[in-house]
Design a protein around this nucleic acid. Structure first.
Length: 933
RNA sequence: GCGGGUGUGGUGAAAUUGGUAGACACGCUAGACUUAGGAUCUAGUGCCGCGAGGCUUGGGGGUUCGAGUCCCUCCACCCGCACCA
């Protein structure tokens, strides 16, 4: 009987299904363990072999934990809202709900094919009204909350209004407008609309204005992704930045907590560093510069107040509100032209731009201490969204400012004396400040605090902490997303269930369901498609007023910010999850996904978790305790070489003799690098009559590493691999490719090694002629040693996610047992259990053949015994002057004196010593021996 | 531009604490068995050299008895950068 993986895998799957083997309960005497994968967006292209890498790792780990005695939650679901489905709808007229459903079905088939242990009873889809009902509910929690900077916590708005009635906002400035000041009396005197507009400056979910990519020709707002080289990807139309009213989440209030609690997470330092950099906390000062002949002032943020006497010019972001007000008539035309240029540029282009550009406004700021005139410029390198959108430029102390001053011939004030050479800015902070009035001769630190004091005394500056992090834009002018549970009365937003809106009972309920539409065209003025459905948009309240619904939808990260909570209690109709369930499962113990989510999804879900915790809905305030990032699997493309202007193809080794065109060929019709010529002729009509120049009878393709993508014809579908080699082989091969967190190319050819391993493993149990050959003989020492060393290694490799070395160890063990001709039950029984997390199907089948009743996936994980894993002697490499010359075996407990005598009398060592006396003898027990001459 | 990561045979890689570089596989070479081989088994396989031996972990420099591993410096490639998810 040979290794028939199709039959083995089918019957194992049927057995598990009949047993409901993956069903997970929320109560158990076992300790809990929560393993989670970043859930996929179900795209129309289906899964390729790169996607399951992390899923296989988490599946192995989840299965391992089950066998180790844990109650393991390992769910899967779908991030089902998104732009591609809507784009597809625009092109084909197929409703996103229909295509999404279809894609999910395909994904589930593909996932099940690989044999994951998901409890599909717990599946969630973000586009399901019973799911997004709670996404909307959480949004309303944020809308009805503010962040109390004293308690450092989100609190219901009621605690804020109570305070405002008592003492105004003296102790709690509005994060949305720090200049806003009012007394209790003033607050009480405000009308309801006035009060609501003040509260808007506090809410954690709030309305403000922000720029989006607007494409006049398409009449729509575009995502960054859809803008390529400054024009729309579809049609190549011009685009520009347009200001629109949008929802935001006040994540900046959580900046410090998001930084602080990173310390308690088991994430890679690199990932934590990326989050810290993204949040970008910097301490410095805010300084107001008066503008000559003008009432307003320019506020800048600087981390180097000590350099204030080196300010030679100011730079405003071109979209800064003051630009229009201060520009002189003479400069007007140039400024308008420059602003126009910047409008067409993305932030990234602006930051990456090496070419220096800018425009003088004609206005001058006045130095707060010296009264010197400082020219005010605008330039694209200053971004409106960062800091105050304005900087004081110190060319002698900052590289960018230095280059700018040089480029425009602005005179540079040297405040670093001899340390500044005129060639480049002085960025060293261990210097003395000179030429700087009252801080001349001081260190950077001293000067900074003296300047701050002076600014504070004058009332034109203060210490300030600035963050690079911006509040999260939460509106999308799209159809296929969560509708907002918001209505506008006289242009003032209300939650649908707020008394002030006074909606009929039925309209107050969540979810606010996404209406069915047939036309996905954008609404007027860049509004989303929902704006076109008048009967949905307009609602009448109990007073007979006509209210207008919010017509934007929520962004992709809305649903994904809390999905890990819904898996704990997926069917709950009364809450996003029962507190009993969240208290039981708590944080995700292990989260696996790509680094591409480093600063988006991972920051937002951390913020949502903290907010829900603050408001009393969760007992923990971090969602993901341990995070593992899997690398990407790249595609290995295959190229054929067509002799230019002909239909003749030349093999890679001979191509240099011709002028050729490189053509990507479908990797599925290439074996390694050898092209299947017959299949190639069938591949496309135009190649039916192709001719070939072969080398040694073969057509050899070129190879190239690039992204796995349809475009390069290098996509490999896991279904094909599973059909050809089986799921167990596929799982083990993905792990065998290399470390989980590393990116690597896919090469189907290499899978043979793992497949051979499984076939050979099977032959420990079955012989082609004799059938079942497992015996009950007592195991020999060598066999026990092979087994126990392997158990030890596999367990520690699995614990530290070194799955590639674990697969190697299985191979090493198998090679040893084959050499020992071992077919003993006492060895093979634990070995089958050990293999279960990696190759569950074959393990299940052999487990049954070994005579066990239950499923191997619930069997106990094998344990190793120390006594079988230790050696008592070691073959030492013996080096002379660090170069290994000979190998000598010694007992591990040998004395140094004995070893020294033996080594020095060895003839090979004698030869290398050339009669000289050894200077030093180094003996590292269990490692090596080195003689220094 | 900013931030993060990675460089080891023809290929994927291993070396967990500074201690025999290349385990385990793919591929390749030769052979055995076979009606057949895209099955299985055996042997070999980093580079140079007939050999003794020498060289070798992206380049250069350093620390050390000893460096893939630690330090400095340079280079190349990959990923992210706020409306793809």
């Amino acid at each position: 009987m040979e290794y028939n993986f199709q039959q083995i895998e089918q019957s194992a799957k049927a057995f598990w299904a009949a047993q409901q083997a993956y069903k997970v309960k929320n109560d158990s005497t076992r300790p809990k363990y929560y393993v989670l994968d970043m859930f996929p967006y179900p795209s129309g292209a289906g899964l390729h072999v790169g996607h399951p890498l992390g899923y296989i790792a988490s599946d192995i780990f989840a299965r391992y934990k089950v066998m180790k005695g844990f109650n393991v939650l390992h769910p899967m679901g779908f991030d089902a809202f998104g732009l591609p489905a809507e784009q597809y709808a625009l092109e084909t007229g197929q409703h996103p709900a229909v295509t999404t459903e279809k894609n999910i079905k395909r994904y589930k088939e593909q996932l099940d094919n690989i044999g994951f242990n998901y409890d599909w009873n717990r599946e969630v889809r973000t586009s399901d009204p019973q799911y997004y009902r709670w996404t909307q509910w959480i949004f309303l929690q944020l809308f009805q909350s503010w962040f109390n900077r004293e308690s450092r916590k989100a609190e219901p708005l009621s605690t804020l209004t109570a305070r405002l009635e008592q003492e105004g906002n003296k102790g709690c400035p509005a994060p949305g407008d720090e200049t806003l000041r009012f007394t209790a009396e003033e607050w009480k005197a405000m009308s309801e609309p006035e009060q609501r507009s003040v509260l808007m400056q506090y809410r954690l979910a709030y309305l403000d204005h922000a720029e989006v990519w607007w494409c006049e020709a398409l009449g729509t707002v575009l995502a960054n992704d859809e803008v390529v080289n400054g024009v729309s990807e579809r049609g190549g139309h011009p685009v520009e930045r347009k200001k629109m009213r949008q929802w935001f989440l006040r994540i900046t209030e959580y900046a410090d907590r998001l930084i602080d609690s990173l310390d308690n997470l088991e994430w890679s330092e690199a990932m934590k560093e990326m989050q810290r950099n993204w949040i970008g906390r910097s301490e410095g000062a805010s300084v107001h510069f008066a503008v000559e002949n003008h009432k307003g002032s320019i506020e800048v943020f600087t981390t180097r107040p000590d350099t204030i006497f080196g300010v030679d010019f100011m730079v405003l972001a071109p979209e800064h509100a003051l630009v229009d007000l201060i520009t002189t008539d003479v400069q007007k035309e140039a400024v308008v032209q420059y602003v126009g240029y910047v409008k067409s540029r993305s932030e990234r282009e602006r930051m990456a731009e090496k070419k220096i550009s800018g425009c003088f406004t004609g206005a001058y700021a006045l130095h707060p201490f010296s009264g010197k005139q400082i020219p005010v410029w605008i330039s694209e390198y200053v971004l409106a969204g960062y800091g105050t959108g304005a900087i004081m430029a110190v060319p002698s102390g900052d590289d960018r400012d230095h280059a700018f001053a040089r480029h425009f011939g602005i005179e540079i004030t040297n405040i670093f004396g001899a340390q500044y050479t005129g060639e480049s800015a002085v960025s060293d902070k261990n210097v003395t400040i000179e030429q700087s009035g009252f801080v001349s001769g001081k260190s950077v630190k001293e000067a900074a605090s003296l300047v701050l004091e002076a600014l504070e005394t004058k009332g034109i500056g203060a210490r300030k902490i600035n963050y690079r992090l911006r509040d999260a834009g939460f509106s999308r002018q799209r159809y296929w997303g969560e509708p907002f549970p918001i209505v506008y009365k006289n242009n003032i937003p209300y939650a649908v269930n707020e008394a002030g809106a006074n909606l009929p009972e039925a309209l107050q309920q969540l979810p606010v369901t996404l209406p069915y539409i047939e036309n996905y065209k954008p609404g007027p003025e860049g509004e989303g498609p929902l704006a076109n459905i008048a009967e949905w948009v307009m609602v009448q309240n109990n007073d007979g007023d006509l209210l207008k619904r919010e017509t934007n939808t929520m962004p992709g990260y809305a649903g994904s910010s809390w999905y890990f909570l819904r898996y704990m209690d997926p069917g709950n109709a009364d809450a996003f999850a029962d507190p009993k369930a969240t208290d039981y499962w708590k944080q995700v113990d292990l989260y696996i996904g790509g680094t591409e989510h480093a600063v988006g999804h991972l920051l937002y879900s951390r913020m949502w978790t903290k907010a829900l915790h603050d408001l009393g809905y969760l007992s923990f305030d971090e969602p993901f305790k341990r995070l593992v990032n899997q690398g990407m699997i790249g595609g290995s493309s295959r190229l054929v070489y067509r002799i230019s202007g002909t239909n003749q193809f030349v093999s890679a080794g001979l191509k240099d003799a011709y002028q050729t065109d490189e053509i990507h060929v479908d990797v599925n019709i290439v074996d390694g690098v050898e092209l299947d010529v017959a299949q190639f002729k069938q591949w496309r009509e135009e190649y039916y009559n192709a001719e070939f120049i072969l080398e040694e009878g073969k057509y050899i393709c070129g190879a190239q590493l690039e992204k796995m993508s349809k475009r390069y014809h290098n996509v490999v579908n896991p279904d094909d691999i599973v059909r050809q080699y089986g799921a167990d082989t596929f799982r083990m091969y993905e792990m065998f490719l290399g470390p989980i967190e590393m990116s690597k190319p896919w090469d189907t050819k290499g899978i043979e090694g793992v497949h051979r391993f499984l076939k050979k493993f099977w032959r420990l149990f079955y012989d082609e002629q004799q059938g079942w050959i497992v015996t009950d003989e007592a195991p020999a020492d060598a066999e026990l040693k092979a087994l126990h060393k392997t158990i030890k290694k596999i367990e520690s490799d699995t614990e530290r996610f070194s799955f590639n070395t674990a697969v190697s160890q299985f191979m090493i063990c198998l090679n040893e047992l084959t050499d020992l001709n071992c077919h003993k039950r006492a060895i093979l029984d634990p070995l089958v259990r050990l293999l279960t997390p990696y190759a569950p199907h074959v393990a299940e089948t052999l487990w049954k053949q070994l005579g066990h009743d239950g499923s191997v996936i619930h069997a106990a994980y094998p344990e190793w015994e120390e006594k079988y894993t230790v050696d008592n002697s070691k073959v030492y490499p013996v080096a002379v002057n660090g170069k290994p010359r000979v190998e000598l075996e010694f007992a591990l407990d040998a004395e140094q004196a004995f070893i020294e005598k033996e080594v020095l009398s060895n003839e090979v060592i004698q030869k290398w010593l050339e009669g000289k006396e050894p200077k030093k003898f180094i003996y590292v027990k269990g490692r090596m021996i080195n003689v220094v001459v």
